[in-house]
Design a protein around this nucleic acid. Structure first.
Lengths: 209, 209
DNA sequence: TCGAATATGGAAGTGACTACCATATGACTG
DNA sequence: CAGTCATATGGTAGTCACTTCCATATTCGA
């Protein structure tokens, strides 16, 4: 790796860190990109070359965790899907737990700022989509549409668990550990421990021919 | 109801309709709020009194469907939760199906414009939250934290089904009907027809004491 | 019909983000 | 090592979403 990429990574980190510092100190809305650029000692136009929007500066860490988990999943050998999905959940939670303060700060900023909240929601949705794409690749033996449907629901369930667990953890950091919470969530979902919509009255034949 | 509220509703509709027209014709990014205001024959400042952001102009219809369903659910007598949840799903889908073109247009705009996509994701998330709030109110007999956990997962499952079904419907309007798709989704989720993360290795005692 | 409450339009300003260009810096070739 | 090529940077000018504030107009209750 050349000196170029090294400096790139360095300035990228610098900008993101300075931005986060200013956000947590003075709030998202009360911090301008010019202030961030000045703090990182770069020009505003340089900042925009690294980060397309102000919001991405907040969410970079969470994005890395989620997308990293998807990338990791893609490289895993194809085994039993349930176990693989559990591994994805564990990986995301473990990654987030490595920086609890940062995670909590992100969710706090999201609560205060609608646009940050919106981008966070979309980030999580994007994670669900990428996971679903990988799942549909692995779901062989089903017709394409059925595979897509199954993969989407499956990825959605994973997302549901992660999102619920993380939000509860953020709200109550001293409560049950995320990993333990996730296990309980899986148990509940598997064992019918949670109220689930009942199937329709009439013909609910299994999907596909 | 006075004349005042009548005119309010009328201008609100007018603005939203004109905006949607311009968005679908020229794209979200190529339409300025001044153009919308001019088309609706109001001042820009008036427009912002009705809609806080440009994105809400796109999502108004979907928001009405989702929030309307939650409001309806709140007023329903408390009965069996699974049936009630199914009713919520059916209601949302039925409401969306009343205006298929509009729904498709919204999702198309969301695909083209990141900020619209982000706000759509947050809207759906907000729906999940409100649903969870109502569920936790109905889940008596469990300790508070357990109820919150269960409600969140349950609402997330409902959201998962709706979102998956609607997206598939939007992608392929000629395919299986949304309601039928939803029934199949419920069957799959209930019957273990989809790959679900497996429970952890060790102690997965049921949540709560 | 008069006064109070509220809705409207316009003007001025802030700040995110874009497009563009001149310059500087790291990377490869002789 | 010198040259030159690709790329990274900083600055400028501009667009547009959104806010704040005030003067005016419209509706409502008495």
């Amino acid at each position: 790796m050349g000196l170029r990429e090294l400096k790139r990574e360095r300035t990228r980190r610098l900008i993101a860190d300075k931005a986060f510092e200013l956000f947590t100190d003075h709030g998202f809305g009360r911090t301008t990109v010019e202030q961030i650029a000045a703090a990182a000692e770069v020009g505003p136009s340089t900042l925009y070359r690294y980060f397309p929007t102000k919001e991405t500066l907040v969410l970079e860490f969470v994005e890395d965790c989620l997308m990293g988990a998807v990338a990791w999943f893609r490289e895993q050998p194809e085994g039993e899907l349930p176990d693989a999905l559990q591994a994805v959940i564990e990986r995301v939670l473990a990654e987030l737990e490595r920086n609890p303060d940062r995670v909590r700060a992100v969710f706090e900023l999201a609560e205060q700022t609608p646009s940050v909240s919106a981008h966070l929601s979309e980030l999580i949705w994007s994670f669900r989509n990428k996971l679903a794409d990988e799942l549909v690749r692995r779901l062989t033996g089903l017709d394409p549409q059925c595979a897509e449907f199954t993969a989407a629901l499956s990825a959605g369930t994973v997302m549901n668990i992660i999102e619920t667990v993380v939000r509860m953890w953020v709200d109550d950091p001293a409560g049950t550990e995320p990993l333990e919470l996730a296990c309980q969530a899986m148990s509940l979902l598997r064992g019918g421990g949670i109220p689930m919509p009942s199937v329709g009255s009439g013909d609910n034949a299994p999907y596909g021919p």
